[in-house]
């Protein structure tokens, strides 16, 4: 608490909610955040209570574990983002849940941090999320890179899948190898801002494609009740 408070973005304290089914982990994360001046509003241990509590306390950032038992954090992420447009969801998950992480990000989560990240990394990620930036960790970059390659490799698509530009691929690879945005900028001799834009663009294309696919699925299966 002695350090300049990273949680305070100016005078505004960032409000956070922690969702994890593991009590030690949940309390540890909450303490890390409290010590650094964040306002931890609430915590939840499963998907349903996470959605319910989030609607009640309206946190700025939800730290979401994906492995929650019956209903996964992906569903909770989708519900929270649908109900609370101003709330950001940051996925904090064990390294193995690749599919779920990708699904959560497609559903609108702003980023992904592995649970083994240090307290400093966590705090920085929450701060960035609250500021509306994407938390593009190496793990997420690897997943996104792989997802674009999968889409490019899968045959006969009625709907053209989004593709990465060469530059975007280059940026994602460097991020996946652990370079910070600043290091990527230096390596490619472009501005820090440009790197951020490339990264954001890869996510936006993916999320947009996901929404289109969902809508198409709904129409094909007669889920659009209007018609």
């Amino acid at each position: 608490m002695g350090t300049a408070c990273a949680g305070g973005d100016g005078d505004v304290t960032v409000s956070v909610m922690v969702v994890d089914d593991h009590p030690i982990w949940r309390d540890g994360v909450a303490r890390d955040l409290l010590e650094r001046g964040f306002h931890v509003l609430a915590s939840a241990r499963d998907a349903d209570s996470a959605v319910r509590i989030a609607k009640a306390v309206r946190p700025a950032v939800v730290l979401m574990d994906l492995n929650l038992g019956e209903r996964s954090g992906v569903a909770a992420t989708r519900d929270i983002i649908a109900a609370l447009p101003d709330t950001k969801v940051l996925v904090l998950s064990a390294s193995g849940e690749h599919d779920d992480v990708l699904e959560a990000v497609k559903a609108g989560a702003s980023g992904y941090l592995v649970k083994s990240a240090s307290a400093e990394e966590l705090v920085e990620a929450v701060r960035m999320t609250a500021a509306g930036e994407a938390v593009f960790t190496p793990g997420l970059a690897g997943l996104v890179l792989g997802e674009y390659r999968r889409m490019a490799g899968s045959p006969e698509q009625e709907h053209p899948a989004p593709e990465l530009t060469d530059r975007e691929t280059e940026v994602l690879r460097l991020v996946a190898k652990g370079l910070t945005a600043r290091q990527v900028a230096a390596r490619l001799v472009i501005s820090h801002r440009t790197v951020e834009n490339h990264v954001q663009s890869t996510l936006r294309k993916l999320q947009l494609h996901n929404r289109v696919e969902l809508a198409r699925y709904a129409i094909e299966h007669g889920l659009d009740t209007d018609s």
């Binding site: 990708l102 592995v114 960790t137 190496p138 793990g139 690897g142 997943l143 792989g146 999968r150």
Partner: peptide
Amino acid sequence: LRSHLRMLSTPSVQVSVPPT
């Protein structure tokens, strides 16, 4: 290969893999 690689991850080693 992914499931074996990710066992190598530690607080100082991050492992990134494709989703498939």
